[in-house]
Nucleic acid binder design. Structure first.
Length: 273
DNA sequence: CGATTATCCTGTGCGC
DNA sequence: TGCGCACAGGATAATC
């Protein structure tokens, strides 16, 4: 469930802690974590200095001296946690980055959906992704959404979580964005009027920015943590996600759960049209 | 081509 | 109290 705000919080933590440090050794024990690699290409990073930590959507981009880029995706249950070499290895630790003078960085992921791969090796890339959901200015975002939604029959929520449309939005923030924009998540994308698209664009920026400021959402499963193990605070601001039957914060009508394909969507039947 | 469905996986929480 | 099972969902392949 790490989405753009959670991944951005991890990104800034990684940048603050490890940029400029030299990787002594990367050890990978989880074969599924590096499943896109035919061989142990990650070895190429040993001895390099971390130059920069970027992000596109939910993908973390660790750029090393020599311009090698390691891509990390947390998917459902992945965590990147700072640790000291002596700390006990917790269950489901699949990779350990050991830095000179900066301790360790550990990739922990019970469900093994997450992964690490080197950008560009054997054609592995991120070319299919749309623009980062926080990477466009207001006018460009509005124009982009208008273009992407035009003529689309799929529900608004399905389009919001489609990483080819915009990169970074997942289940939680799609519901919160739709609520903020006062749009039902099951509206066909192409049915939105220009002023509704404009509202949607504003809500994408507003919700994601506020969630980044609150360092992401840590749900009841307490799975999402930043690099130092701290929880986020944006779950306190959720208006609809996971709040089935609870009163809408705006109008007190019970929030409804809607089945959208195999997934669910939460919305207020009165505030959203 | 666009829309929908299945798949991967384990921890959690619910009902009986 | 304990057991079994549905559910959670990001990305991608497969199918309609």
């Amino acid at each position: 469930m790490p989405e753009l705000p959670e991944v951005e919080t991890v990104r800034s933590g990684l940048a603050a802690t490890y940029v400029g440090k030299e990787l002594e050794r990367l050890t990978v024990s989880g074969t599924r974590t590096v499943r896109r690699h035919p061989e142990d290409l990650l070895r190429r990073l040993d001895g390099r200095r971390l130059a920069e930590v970027g992000r596109h959507g939910k993908f973390l981009l660790l750029r090393w001296d020599g311009d090698e880029v390691l891509v990390a995706h947390l998917r459902m249950s992945g965590q990147l946690l700072a640790a000291l070499p002596g700390d006990p290895l917790q269950a489901h630790t699949h990779a350990v980055f050991c830095f000179h003078g900066a301790g360790e960085l550990r990739f922990v992921d019970p469900r093994t959906f997450g992964e690490l791969f080197l950008l560009g090796s054997d054609g592995l890339g991120l070319g299919h992704l749309g623009p980062d959901a926080l990477g466009l200015g207001a006018a460009a975002l509005r124009a982009h959404l208008a273009r992407e939604l035009a003529g689309r029959r799929a529900p608004l929520k399905a389009l919001l979580v489609d990483q080819r449309v915009l990169a970074g939005i997942g289940n939680i923030y799609a519901d919160e964005i739709a609520f903020s924009a006062r749009l039902r998540p099951d509206r066909p994308g192409g049915s939105l009027k220009p002023r509704e698209v404009a509202r949607l664009a504003v809500s994408v920026s507003a919700v994601l920015s506020a969630a980044v400021a609150a360092r992401g959402s840590t749900l009841a499963d307490r799975r999402y943590r930043d690099v130092w193990g701290e929880a986020g605070r944006y779950q306190l601001e959720h208006k609809v996600y996971g709040r089935n039957g609870m009163p809408c914060a705006t109008c007190a009508v019970p929030v409804q759960r809607l089945a959208l394909g195999a997934r669910s969507a939460y919305f207020c039947p009165r505030c959203q049209a």
